[in-house]
Design a protein around this nucleic acid. Sequence first.
DNA 1: AACAGTTTTTTAAACGGCCATTCAAGTTTC
DNA 2: GAAACTTGAATGGCCGTTTAAAAAACTGTT
Lengths: 191, 191
Amino acid sequence: MSRKRIRDIRNEELIEATIVAVHKRGYGVVTMAEIAREAGASAASINYYFGSKEGLMEATMLHLLGKLRRAMSEGYATARTPRERLYAVMDANFADDLFTVPQCSIWMQFWANAPYSPRLSRLHRINRARVRSHFLAELRALLPAQRVETARQALQCYMDGVWLQAAQSEEALDPEDARAAAHRVVDLVIP
Amino acid sequence: MSRKRIRDIRNEELIEATIVAVHKRGYGVVTMAEIAREAGASAASINYYFGSKEGLMEATMLHLLGKLRRAMSEGYATARTPRERLYAVMDANFADDLFTVPQCSIWMQFWANAPYSPRLSRLHRINRARVRSHFLAELRALLPAQRVETARQALQCYMDGVWLQAAQSEEALDPEDARAAAHRVVDLVIP
DNA sequence: AACAGTTTTTTAAACGGCCATTCAAGTTTC
DNA sequence: GAAACTTGAATGGCCGTTTAAAAAACTGTT
């Protein structure tokens, strides 16, 4: 019981520290010692919990993917029309606890490094396919078949592009603003 | 005369090798020795020409930015209407000699690492501002003022998003296809 | 053409430093 | 007292850069 607890607490602490440290120093450059210092622990204890640096990175991404998946499920629960569900997909990506500079930053580093790590690229593919199928399902209800794919690409690439920009931002982000802008883009694509 | 020649030839060879090597191994992981092997040279000679690894990376990005800038100028020369110029901006980004997996890949790594290198982030800001002002100039001629900014964000983020996806592709890209899709997105945003 | 002198280019080897991981020896928790 | 947790120090390896010396390219002269 409490054995599991400690492990879970440490896991979360270390993952949060990883997000901050990767944001500060960059995925390819950050060291175990830096992450450990951020967490107030030692590099050795990270290996005790995650086995290796790559294991830690994978766990961190799983953590973020889970957050995104949950945010999307919640939005879907209350949305009633296809258009509302499109909004919900966008809102999930720009949720208050996801759309922050450190998290966009690490997401982007994740994207950049996915092609070089089978474990990361697997996560990347799965997530991408899920978002894609959500978009397609709603768009098919709103548009004639031959326009669905163009609209899907426009929206999905827009989402990626916003995150990419957000990762470069030097000031805090405004998630509410981002959601409003995303809604406008949806309306632009689905008149 | 011929002194300059050799230097220029080596520069270009080494930069091409850098693009390939970074694509193969990843920006943060690639070593000088790997780049050198790709170019058929030694790591020491890269330092002779570029001073340091960071110098090489900056030169490589300057090379790519130059290519992009030239492609855009050419397109602008023949475009006559605002809409054609919007197409031209898109076409430049998806030009045959720019829209390849290795180049999208290195571009994306560049984005991811820009925040951690003043030299890279400077290049990044300049390029982004240029694309932005091109978009704004044309959109202002086509849309009422209050819709310009939304459209600009939609288009610019779309472009970034497509590159981001392209960098993950396991097969060769189809630039013509990408240009056609981009035109459709422009038409979607500017009816 | 040939050559000696000068400059440019190349690289092997050495240097110094840093990092992920392991391990053994502690400390805490149950 | 056992099991879970923590860490300082050791390990082994790798990498960017420098250096010194050789090779190649060029120059002007005979």
